[in-house]
């Protein structure tokens, strides 16, 4: 099932799909971060795929690698019951387009990713900290943020 999704995606967005692999029956597609909105819009609107549900959106910090961050999208289709994982690489200080326009639920997820990693989502309506206090210094889930706080 998810092979079909990856194939379709590769055909349609030949230049945007940087890599794809499968582990434990879960397909992961790495997308060029400039095209994330276009890819997501397609995944949601295509009738065969209809990924209408954004399960999760989170950041991951690969410190020491360039680009440093990854934004991970877990998509699900309520009709078709299939899942796919999208990833986009974002360097430190770089911006990535927000997907709030596609899935409303991305609002808080993106705020959290910003709060925890400092990833900036362009076009987000209200990109402020969500879990940490407004005046907090630093982004706690970064690997260089000490476990015991500062």
């Amino acid at each position: 099932m998810s092979e079909m999704v990856v194939d379709k995606l590769k055909k349609r967005f030949f230049a945007s799909v940087l890599d794809s692999y499968s582990f434990r029956d879960e397909s992961t597609v790495i997308i060029n971060k400039e095209d994330i909105v276009a890819v997501c819009g397609y995944l949601k609107s295509d009738p065969d795929l209809s990924f209408d549900f954004l399960s999760d959106l989170c950041g991951v910090d690969y410190m020491g690698r360039e680009p440093r961050f990854e934004v991970v999208y877990h998509l699900f289709s309520i009709d078709k019951h299939h899942r796919i994982r999208l990833k986009a690489m974002v360097g430190e200080g770089e911006k990535i387009s927000s997907v709030v326009g596609i899935w409303g639920t991305a609002d808080w997820h993106e705020r959290e990713a910003f709060d925890m990693y400092g990833i900036i989502f362009e076009g987000h309506p209200n990109l402020i900290r969500i879990l940490m206090p407004e005046d907090w210094d630093g982004h706690p889930l970064r690997k260089d943020y000490p476990l015991k706080g500062r």
Binding site: F23, E26, S55, D56, C58, V60, H74, R85
Partner: peptide, 30 residues
């Protein structure tokens, strides 16, 4: 590797996303 698994809890979809770098601790636990 990395896995995402979700179950139906009384409140809805509860998912865990774990990235493993092969060490004894998760690299990322979402």
């Amino acid at each position: 590797g990395e896995v995402y698994h979700s179950i139906e809890t009384p409140r809805g979809e509860l998912g865990f996303y774990i990235v493993s770098d092969g060490s004894n601790k998760p690299y990322r636990l979402r």
